[in-house]
């Protein structure tokens, strides 16, 4: 009789552990998904601003066709990117192309004085900052999620349960996520 109770107790503890652990993985996955949504919003906004910028610059510097093409191509690559890693790479291309466009714009004083252009430039700088802020959050959540499904015992069952590792959003391999230890409790 005693053994039956012990067995029941062990089973009950195991069930609780499984439920808690599973819920934790679901929560970590949702956090990573939210983190991705935050990046996606900013990528969308960036993509929407670019055609306006090209229009604004074309009015003053119509013959700089090479740069326009480069920006348009990079933007298309960004919008077609199917995975976080691909989007990260495409995003770097967009940044580089925009940098060149702004460098070209330097040569046109009238353009630089245009209010519309200045506003667009300001907004694009802002989205770039926000993308890198959102990237920091996303990469941290992905790191926690991946660590969660790669550690025992979950590594054994994560795949059958539908937990797949997520990609970092990054370029040039800066996947290092800060590890700040919480200081000793005083």
């Amino acid at each position: 009789m005693l053994w039956l109770w012990i067995a029941l107790g062990v089973v009950a503890v195991l069930v609780v552990l499984v439920v808690v652990g599973y819920n934790r993985l679901v929560r970590l996955r949702n956090e990573a998904d939210t983190g991705w949504a935050n990046i996606d919003v900013q990528l969308q906004r960036r993509g929407d601003l670019i055609p306006n910028l090209i229009e604004a610059v074309r009015g003053y510097a119509a013959h700089e066709r090479g740069v326009f093409e480069e920006v348009t191509k990079a933007r298309a690559a960004l919008q077609q990117a199917a995975s976080p890693a691909a989007a990260g790479e495409a995003n770097e291309l967009v940044s580089a192309a925009l940098g060149r466009l702004f460098a070209v714009a330097e040569a046109y004083p009238e353009l630089r004085a245009s209010e519309n252009f200045l506003r667009l430039q300001d907004e694009l700088t802002d989205t770039e900052d926000k993308i890198s802020a959102a990237r920091r959050y996303y990469n941290t959540t992905v790191m926690h999620y991946n660590t969660g499904i790669q550690s025992l015992p979950w590594v054994l069952v994560a795949r059958p349960l539908g937990f797949r590792e997520k990609e970092f959003f990054s370029a040039e391999g800066d996947t290092a996520v800060p590890q700040v230890a919480f200081p000793p409790q005083t």
């Binding site: 956090e31 983190g35 802002d126 802020a133 959102a134 959050y137 959540t141």
Partner: peptide, 11 residues
């Protein structure tokens, strides 16, 4: 904007 960026990074 600065506050916006920090709170985005904080999630």
């Amino acid at each position: 904007r600065l506050v916006e960026n920090v709170s985005i990074a904080a999630g």
